[in-house]
Design a protein around this nucleic acid. Sequence first.
DNA 1: GGCTTTGTTGCAACAAAGTTGCATTTGCTG
DNA 2: CAGCAAATGCAACTTTGTTGCAACAAAGCC
Lengths: 146, 146
Amino acid sequence: MPDFPADFFAAQLRAAAVKVTRPRLRVLACLGRAAKALTHAELEEQFAAEAAGTLDRVTLYRVLDSLLDCGLAQRTLDARGVYRFELNSVRAAHAAHAHFHCQHCGGVTCLEQMAMPAACLPAGFVARQIEVEVRGLCAGCAGGGR
Amino acid sequence: MPDFPADFFAAQLRAAAVKVTRPRLRVLACLGRAAKALTHAELEEQFAAEAAGTLDRVTLYRVLDSLLDCGLAQRTLDARGVYRFELNSVRAAHAAHAHFHCQHCGGVTCLEQMAMPAACLPAGFVARQIEVEVRGLCAGCAGGGR
DNA sequence: GGCTTTGTTGCAACAAAGTTGCATTTGCTG
DNA sequence: CAGCAAATGCAACTTTGTTGCAACAAAGCC
């Protein structure tokens, strides 16, 4: 995860013609610090632990929406059907390789060595990202469990 | 979509050592009839329209769970993060090719001509299915909108 | 710097999707 | 056909996400 300079996020917000507010900066900082994409609930927890105090549920949803709108963050669904939010810059690195999803323990493993297919689309279609997910059993669950 | 013989589903349930009940048969018949994977809400609607009368929300959830357990159905998340249920036999055909997901209109297109990658896993991992999703803009949205 | 405007925040209430507990009914087995 | 375990239906609840609205604050203007 890259380390972000102090005023980095504020500059990004200004560049996107979006107001620079404390909640937005807090969310960006938190997402920048996180190793993984976070759910709304996880973000809320983080803020509750911070000295700056809790952040309203709805505000958090709306902040995240605004970050999606201006292209700073992206949203994906996890295995439970819950949205996870991630800085776009961080996400780009993860889109580049396949992921393994264990159907038993739910764990996710990066498959960096696996070849990604080339997009082969009908005329007029534009590809922005390709996601490959392999499902099955991880070493731990295949050996012992189920 | 294949056409299922009269007693087909009952036989499948018996084979899976699961009790043959009216709700389960209704759900299987409905899924067998459907062209696409259905959500819980869509199934409920279908049943409300049927002469046999409505099916309890919770019962429907539990019936679907039991069908997942015994391997007759599968569950995936749609773009909204809602579960969609599908007969396993129908689904197998769809897992074999990549899908295109339009980020603008939300439409899904089958990419039958696109090559699927081979799974390349760490030792001990077992692959059961590979899913490839290309995201971007479909012909309609790339041309006109956004 | 103070003022205005417009977008943002926080609160309350709501909606959709899914889960849990429990009493009753139903399918299967002997 | 009697008994039992499993399945059903009902009510209540949890989690996740959304909408409406009044109070507030950031950015621009004088």
